[in-house]
Simulated scan of single mutants.
Amino acid sequence: MTRQKQLQQNGKDKAAVLLVSLGADISAEIYKHLTEEEIEELTLSISNVRSIDKETKNQVIAEFYQLALAKEYISKGGMSYAKQILEKALGPDEAMIIINKLTSIVRPFDFMRKADPKQILNYIQNEHPQTIALVLSYLEPQQSSQIISELQEDIQADVARRIALMDRTSPEIISQVEHILKQKLSVADDYTQTGGIETVVDVLNGVDRTTEKTILEHLDAQDPDLAEEIKKRLFAFEDIIALDDRSIQRLVREVNNEDLLLSLKTASDELKQVLFKNMSERMAETLKEEMEFMGPVQLREVEEAKTRIVNVIRKLEDAGEIVIARSGGDGVIV
Rank of each mutant, 00 (worst) to 15 (best):
E37Q: 04
L7N: 04
K277E: 13
E87T: 15
A160M: 14
D167V: 13
I333K: 04
Q130N: 08
E304F: 06
V106Q: 05
S21I: 11
Q152T: 10
D220N: 10
I163G: 07
I324R: 02
E292D: 14
K101N: 09
I148R: 02
D220W: 08
E153M: 09
I46E: 11
E198Y: 06
L165Q: 07
G328T: 01
K88E: 03
R113Y: 11
A164I: 14
E36G: 08
D239V: 06
D53S: 05
I74V: 14
D53F: 03
D110N: 14
S21A: 12
I120M: 03
K288A: 03
E228R: 15
Q9M: 06
M112P: 11
R168W: 07
Y65E: 15
L44F: 06
G328Q: 01
V332W: 13
Q298A: 14
D220C: 11
D259T: 07
D116I: 10
I240W: 07
S137K: 12
R3W: 06
F109Y: 13
I85D: 00
D220R: 12
F64A: 08
V334P: 12
M112H: 01
E304Y: 03
L287A: 06
L69Q: 04
V312Q: 08
D13P: 00
Y138S: 11
Q222C: 06
L219N: 08
D225F: 02
G329E: 12
I174A: 01
V207E: 01
S47F: 05
G320M: 05
E254T: 09
E254D: 09
S21Q: 01
A82C: 02
I97F: 03
T43K: 14
V135M: 12
V60W: 06
E289L: 14
G331E: 15
G328W: 09
A160K: 06
V332D: 02
A284S: 15
A325P: 05
A221M: 08
Q125Y: 08
G78D: 00
Q125T: 00
F109C: 04
R50A: 07
E303G: 08
V17I: 10
L22C: 10
D220V: 02
V332N: 06
V274R: 14
L287Y: 11
V332P: 01
K76T: 10
E127G: 14
N100P: 02
K213Y: 07
N48H: 12
V135W: 06
D318A: 10
E292R: 14
S247A: 14
A160W: 13
E229K: 15
L42A: 01
F293N: 07
T192L: 09
R282F: 13
T307H: 11
E36T: 00
E303I: 13
L260D: 09
L243R: 04
G320F: 15
V203W: 09
T214S: 10
L234P: 04
S247T: 04
V332I: 14
L86W: 07
P117E: 00
V17T: 00
D208I: 10
L18N: 06
E140I: 04
Y191W: 12
E289A: 14
